[in-house]
Amino acid sequence: MKYYTKEHEWIELNGDVATVGISVHAADELGDITFVELPEGDAAFTKGAVFSVVESVKAASDIYSPVNGTVTEINEELEDSPELVNESAEDKGWICKFSGVAESDVAGYMTAEQYKAFLAG
């Protein structure tokens, strides 16, 4: 299932593994992304902690962990090609994967449909 936060992150939960990135809307708002600071592998984050920084021409934005978990994989392609976040924010532009994520972590988040309505509102 795919979920969205009000901070414009998306989370795709498979079992206890959550793949996380920023939404197409967020990538569009930031403009040309020139750098993504990736978390260290094995690093543990609690909900709300800064796990990544996404930098565009105009500004740098902190990205907050939407779940409690441990980083098991990072999208190394973003090191050389941060523009993947603009081109494919919710697919090839994923930032990292967290493991040990409880389903209750995502309970309060929006579905794709709810997020769409949230953006329109």
Partner: peptide, 11 residues
């Protein structure tokens, strides 16, 4: 407009 398609392309 802050940009049309891309700030870098426009630059």
């Amino acid at each position: 407009p802050v940009q049309y398609e891309s700030m870098i392309k426009e630059h």
